[in-house]
């Protein structure tokens, strides 16, 4: 009897929490709309790329994300901050369904990419991952030549017509990642011989070689030195004109430097999502303020 009582109480607690967050979530979305209409982002050039509604995510029975709702704009950099284990990386990996490879992982809710639910039945996950590229925490070039690293994606997806076409794609991608001048004379060399910063640029070039719409970056600079970090950040600014970028970062300075919007995650919940300027100057939530000023987290 007792147990059951406790159980129901817990359930009540959970629903209550969710209720609050739901309210928060919906409020955040309207806030987003306000920004758009108030001229912060002229509506003509900015479209909503990803819309996440009430996403719950579980590793087995453990809940990793609860009731996350967010709207991510095209051609903008959206940063996700929060302490380790708060679910920001999990959230990022939900956007290209990389979590599918983890056993027992399960998502509930909707993630709309250009209005289409990527968790709907019959979604082509391979095509989804082509459209939503990913750059990982540690540079992970394949143990092959620089050329082969970039050419891998176009080859397996059949994006090129002939050899010349492939060479062009490789060059464009490397130029896009501001790496061409450094490696154009050594395309045949092993990619693992590059510096870590160059390797990470190579990984970015590799992901843009398959012409994605969105690039997800999971702490792309955490293994890099400050100079390489700066270069990657500059690169992100130049990529912004063509892609929707979502970056997870531990580094709050980085979030404030590079991003247009910032979301703050805490214990699997999206506490606050707003323009980066507002988050870092006038956050609405006490928790956000505490985290940003270093009092929490």
């Amino acid at each position: 009897m007792d147990k059951r009582k406790i159980g129901t109480e817990e359930a009540k607690q959970v629903t209550k929490d969710r209720g609050q967050i739901m309210e928060d979530g919906s409020r955040q979305i309207t806030m987003q709309d306000e920004h758009q209409s108030s001229g912060l982002h002229p509506a003509s050039s900015v479209a909503e790329k990803i819309r996440v509604e009430r996403l719950n995510f579980y590793y087995g029975s453990k809940i990793a994300l609860s009731d996350v709702s967010i709207s991510i704009l095209d051609r903008r950099i959206t940063a996700l901050i929060g302490p380790s284990g708060c679910g920001k990386s999990t959230f990022l990996r939900c956007l290209n369904r990389m979590n599918d490879t983890i056993k027992g992982a399960r998502a509930e809710g909707t993630v709309l990419l250009d209005g289409k639910d990527i968790y709907a039945r019959g979604t082509d996950v391979v095509e989804l991952r082509r459209r939503v590229g990913m750059v990982f925490q540690r540079p992970n070039p394949f143990p092959q030549s620089i050329f082969e690293n970039i050419a891998f994606g176009p080859k397996v997806l059949g994006l090129h017509r002939d050899k010349k076409d492939l060479t062009d794609i490789v060059e464009q991608s490397l130029r896009g990642a501001v790496l061409w001048d450094e490696v154009k004379d050594k395309l045949k060399q092993d990619a693992l011989g590059l510096s870590l910063g160059q390797q990470q640029k190579l990984c970015i070039a590799r992901s843009i070689a398959v012409k994605p719409d969105v690039i997800l970056m999971d702490e792309p600079c955490s293994a890099l030195d400050p100079i390489a970090t700066l270069q990657i950040e500059q690169l992100m600014q130049s990529l912004k004109t063509d892609y929707c970028i979502v970056i997870v970062t531990h580094n709050m300075q980085q979030a404030s430097r590079v991003s247009d919007h910032t979301g703050f995650f805490w214990l699997g919940k999206l506490v606050e999502f707003d323009s980066t300027e507002l988050i870092f100057t006038r956050p609405r939530q006490k928790l956000t303020e505490d985290y940003i000023t270093g009092r929490a987290g």
Binding site: M98, R129, M134, F136, N140, P141, V156, L157, R206, S207
Partner: peptide
């Protein structure tokens, strides 16, 4: 073979 290679390939849309 590190998992990161597999992840990278899958994330690019390889089967």
């Amino acid at each position: 073979v590190p998992k990161s290679y597999r992840d990278a390939a899958l994330a690019m849309g390889a089967t």
